[in-house]
Design a protein around this nucleic acid. Sequence first.
DNA 1: GATGAATGAGTATTCATTCAT
DNA 2: AATGAATGAATACTCATTCAT
Lengths: 209, 209, 209, 209
Amino acid sequence: MHDRHFQELSAGRGKRERTRSALLDAAVSVVAEKGMDGAKITDITTAAGMANGTFYNHFNDKDEILRTAAYGIAFEVSRQIDAEMEEIEDAAARVVTATSRFIAILAAAPDWAAVLLDGADHLPEMRKDLYKYLRGDIERGVAQGKFDVEVNTFLLDQVVALVAVAVRARLRGKPDPSLTPQVCESILRLLGMSPARARKACSHIASPR
Amino acid sequence: MHDRHFQELSAGRGKRERTRSALLDAAVSVVAEKGMDGAKITDITTAAGMANGTFYNHFNDKDEILRTAAYGIAFEVSRQIDAEMEEIEDAAARVVTATSRFIAILAAAPDWAAVLLDGADHLPEMRKDLYKYLRGDIERGVAQGKFDVEVNTFLLDQVVALVAVAVRARLRGKPDPSLTPQVCESILRLLGMSPARARKACSHIASPR
Amino acid sequence: MHDRHFQELSAGRGKRERTRSALLDAAVSVVAEKGMDGAKITDITTAAGMANGTFYNHFNDKDEILRTAAYGIAFEVSRQIDAEMEEIEDAAARVVTATSRFIAILAAAPDWAAVLLDGADHLPEMRKDLYKYLRGDIERGVAQGKFDVEVNTFLLDQVVALVAVAVRARLRGKPDPSLTPQVCESILRLLGMSPARARKACSHIASPR
Amino acid sequence: MHDRHFQELSAGRGKRERTRSALLDAAVSVVAEKGMDGAKITDITTAAGMANGTFYNHFNDKDEILRTAAYGIAFEVSRQIDAEMEEIEDAAARVVTATSRFIAILAAAPDWAAVLLDGADHLPEMRKDLYKYLRGDIERGVAQGKFDVEVNTFLLDQVVALVAVAVRARLRGKPDPSLTPQVCESILRLLGMSPARARKACSHIASPR
DNA sequence: GATGAATGAGTATTCATTCAT
DNA sequence: AATGAATGAATACTCATTCAT
């Protein structure tokens, strides 16, 4: 959520940790601007206000810092969403909440969005964790009789793809309050809810900002 | 559908055309292997069995050849699908046919799939054409009372994303006959059909290979 | 004096000669535009409306065509000047006439000027012929008691340099009627005439155009 | 005056400066050997005993290093000549001294001569500074009644051309003690002095080496 | 002879990575 | 640990020249 997420995490820890975190934060902002392929080591160290050689005191190569940054962000986003979902029982509500919160968080932190979207392509392992949560909620919905769908990896891929479309649209254009409800409805339809119930389940969402 | 698609198109034409086509075919196979960013001019000319300088007799830069290749493939795929859809009136059947044929064609020509998937990211104009067809069929379905959905760009993005997920899954794993029906069902659900009708509309599909 | 000087020379001769001449004329205009270093074989053949391979049926390399073109032009310019000087006896008048005619001819044929100026740098042998004429006139002037100077190669270099400065100035700027008289005066001064006599000897010149 | 002029200037300064200077010195010697057009980045770094990539840590392109080198040399030459001219009042003596010192300096540093001669063609701005000094001295001579000439850019071009001829001659052949007096006389004649006075004003010059 | 496609050596430039200070 | 200069492999692109048709 913050431009200096990693530095905040390492506050109080040793100098080494702080330097490392500054590089991670710099990497995030550079990737947001230029993409993972376009990000150069020099861009990152410059953004961090350091000499380029410093990079290699903390990371072995570009891949390592990008992976670390992407995982760090994915972890933080998961953490935030988890926290807000603790008390929600209804599976449809859980899916809707997770989706809308996910979009809201990334809308508020476009740099993170860029890193996660780019990371999803370049770092296939990253999806796995995400899938665990998602699968749980969907299976819960099937058990509750709310969803009518076969739960498999391919389904999860589809759901994630829809969320990604929404995030990308959110990044690209100006805020559109109907975007989040739309994609939530789509997901619920995908999971087997009728259009009417899907709409109802999404009616209370306010798209962020 | 063939590894030498462009060469076949140019068979009988002059030497210049044949060389150009050989480069296009080489580009396709290189992109399939390394992606658009990873494809180097040298890779392409080597794959085509030519000197690197020859490339520049036919294209100005990587972008030009990749764009040409991607459009050429998109055109051919569209042509094939179009031909098969001429007589289908029912919008749901049209969507299902287009989707399943699209997946089938790309499953049989994985190199093409790679180029189109990569091209969809790098060549935004390429989506536009695709969208025109798609939008027509979906609007027809709404008019027919089959679909219950607001037709906008964001919706088209979602549908395309689902198809892309299917193609990617198809490329990645071994053939799974349930994959195409699954994604067709998902799309129909997205468009507002009930799970039951969606399933029925997809029941006759045989996933390719 | 003409854009197609070499073609005119070869008119009536065989096809081979005409093609060769077309290349020479093309070379002249390309060199005028881009300089000797900047002129590419392709530029020349394109300007001549031929395929690039044709070039090598007539010349071994770029150097050869440029040298041939430069010599051809130098020869033609010499010829014209010579013709006009036949009857002039007075050495000062000869020098003034040769200089002013030289400038006038090149002012009327800027392409030739570019080739000769560029050629003077790249083709040191070219100067030799020029020097023979010049030396004769200057020695005549010394014999006539008009000039007061030691005639050596270095002196000729100086005279030629002054002429070149005038031609360059003529090419660069808009016509200035005082330019030719000025440089003629300079040359006569260099050769040992008093400012007053030098001026008088140049007073009748009209700078070209 | 030295083969390592730039390195001497930067002696004692940081490593960065020293490397940069080594490249400048290398550039000077490469240009002396092959000319500005013929000088390749690789030639320069090789001559400096460095990897080619190092070049780009210090200069953006060939133009930048050549311009820097040419200006650096022009500055040093100007500085040396200026120092020796401070107390000379007589305009003719100033012109003669500047000219003969200029030739002497470049005769002792042929690499510099090559760079300045080439630079005069490629870097038109470089002439401007030179012209300022020259114009001042000539106008002074006119005011003193020593020179009889109209002072304009074209005149300066002529004077500079004569000096350049002398430098080139000096570079080409073996030392000729009469060369410098000769060109000085020529210049004074050009400026309107009589052959006799011109000769006298140059009589004391000893051509270098 | 003319053609023009193919060639490949030559050159500039970028950038991840190393390493002496 | 931090620095930042140096490195050199990788890559795009140009263009004189060759040669089969």
